[in-house]
């Protein structure tokens, strides 16, 4: 940790603060999630630290509740996407042959539609419930996780120690769990950060388009959408939730970037 650059420390600090706010936000929040507490677009004051929104709700309160909603959905989607993508990726890499071809080609087809476009198509008939959002984001995103985990696992699966285990007569589960998985974790951990950023931005984009987390629940992308007009009046209100989104993804990216650089440095040395 001695050589951790400033940028990575900055990233870690921001992530820690966000995690704290996401967990304890509702207890800290001064008002109720969708309580109307004043006039529309009040400026910052001692009562409303960040002012009020287009319906007269306290922005700080909405931001704190929104942290929990937005981050929780993005995190759940990322976890699901990893569970799905990694299982399929490892299966394809270790079994190979027809199984690999079948899964890989199907993923290719799904990936040949831009994620947002595919989500829009699906959401045109599905309701925008939290569960649907998590499932849609997770399934679409798992294609990327599949690609990476398959590639990494293929690299490991051709190693002689995996062949040794197969020659010994070990079962598929054991080979994946004990021989392949531990050796694929470092790149996948970095990828988890990137995929979380993606899910988080994706969810925010959907909410911004009015197709994400539905009102009255607070959500950062939706807050930008609700208050978009304020910009025309010279108010910075929509920039606050948008900035909150940007800050978290920048922070995660800084940490991931440092991790990846470190990994490539170590590889270069080997």
């Amino acid at each position: 940790m001695r050589n951790t650059p400033l940028s990575a420390w900055f990233g870690f600090t921001i992530i820690a603060i966000y995690a704290f706010l996401a967990i304890f936000g509702p207890w800290i929040a001064p008002y109720g999630e969708s309580a109307i507490v004043g006039d529309v677009w009040l400026p910052m004051s001692s009562e409303h630290w960040l002012g009020t929104d287009n319906l007269g709700r306290d922005i700080l309160t909405r931001l704190l509740y929104g942290a929990q909603n937005t981050i929780a959905v993005a995190l759940a989607a990322t976890l699901l996407s990893f569970a799905l993508g990694m299982s399929l990726g490892f299966l394809a890499a270790v079994v190979g042959g027809f199984t690999d071809q079948a899964i890989s080609r199907s993923v290719d087809v799904v990936m040949s539609i831009p994620t947002l476009i595919f989500a829009l198509v699906v959401l045109s008939v599905l309701p925008s419930s939290t569960l649907v959002l998590i499932l849609v984001i997770a399934v679409l995103d798992s294609t990327r996780v599949f690609r990476l985990s398959r590639a990494v696992a293929v690299d490991v699966a051709v190693m002689d120690f995996v062949e040794v285990a197969r020659l010994r007569g070990e079962g598929l589960g054991w080979v994946i769990r004990r021989e392949v998985l531990p050796n694929t974790l470092p790149p996948l951990i970095a990828e988890f950060g990137l995929r979380f950023c993606f899910a988080f931005l994706f969810l925010s984009a959907l909410s911004f388009l009015g197709l994400g987390i539905q009102p009255p629940a607070a959500d950062w992308g939706g807050m930008v959408r609700d208050n978009a007009n304020a910009v025309s009046f010279g108010l910075t209100i929509p920039l606050i939730p948008a900035g909150a989104i940007a800050l978290l993804t920048v922070a995660v990216n800084l940490v991931v970037d440092w991790q990846l650089n470190r990994a490539s440095l170590l590889r270069g040395r080997a």
Partner: peptide, 18 residues
């Protein structure tokens, strides 16, 4: 399987580093 064992060229990749 037990009675027929194999040893490889590259010991680096024949042992699980973890």
């Amino acid at each position: 399987l037990r009675r027929l064992q194999m040893i490889y060229q590259m010991p680096d990749v024949a042992l699980n580093p973890r």
